[in-house]
Structures are given as C-alpha cells and as structure tokens.
C-alpha cells in the first residue's frame, strides 16, 4: 500500500510542477510593462469605489456547515458500505437508523429555511 501512496505523492509533485514550470516559462517570455492604470483593480471600468470588503451573506456559512455534517456522515457510511456484503440485515437496519437520524435533522433545517438562498 505504501507503493500506491508513493505513486500518488510523485503524481502530486508532478502535477504541481507542470503548471508551475509552464507559468514560470510564460513569466519569462512575456513582456513586463506595468503602469499605474494597468495595475489598478478592475471594477467595471471605473475607479474602485470603496475599500475591498463585501457584504458577506450568512448563507455561505450555512451551506458549508450543512455540507460538513453530511460529509462526515458519508465518511462514516463508507466502511459500512465496504462491509455491506458480509453483514446481516439487522446491521443494515442500524445503518438506516444512522441515516434516518440525520434525515430528521435535514428535514428540520429544510423547514427552518436554512437551505433557501436569500
């Protein structure tokens, strides 16, 4: 198994290396003529209106939170899915109870409106 991770490690290095080398090459080949207008921040062609801050909606945080919970739930279910073929029916019922508890929570947040983009 360590060999497989070694391959992945090498692949990670290569896949970071290839775009990096390409960008470096392009950096060398391209002209460099910065001036103040080119370097200014883009805002539909006019000067920047205010300091860079945005009205951060709470919706993003809610989506990330719900994603986190369901991600962890899925991770818990993966080993069970691998062991599925060797496990009797009542153990499958236990996993279904697991899913059902979290589905209850999902229904609650659905009704509460946490999933509706405003």
């Amino acid at each position: 198994m360590l060999n497989q991770w070694l391959y992945i490690g090498i692949f990670v290095v290569i896949s970071v290396f290839l775009p990096g080398v390409a960008i470096l090459l392009a950096r060398i080949l391209s002209p460099k003529k910065p001036n103040a207008i080119k370097n200014s921040v883009y805002e539909c062609g006019v000067e920047t209106f205010d300091k860079t801050w945005i009205q951060f909606r709470i919706q993003y945080y809610l989506y990330a939170l719900v994603f986190l919970i369901f991600d962890v739930e899925t991770v818990f279910l993966f080993p069970f899915a691998v062991a599925y073929n060797q496990v009797p029916l009542f153990m499958v019922m236990e996993a279904i109870i697991f899913i059902a508890i979290l589905m209850g929570g999902f229904l609650y947040i659905w009704r509460k409106g946490a999933l509706t983009w405003r």
Binding site: I58, L62, V66, I69, E73, F76, I97, L102, Y108, K112
Partner: peptide, 16 residues
C-alpha cells in the same frame, strides 16, 4: 449520528 445531529441543529439555529 446523534452528535452530528446536535451539531447540525445547533449550528443552524445559532446562524439563522
């Protein structure tokens, strides 16, 4: 799973 449920409900309740 109950722990995850508590985290989900608590987080959504506070954030909402």
């Amino acid at each position: 799973s109950v722990l995850l449920l508590a985290a989900l409900l608590g987080g959504v309740y506070i954030a909402m």
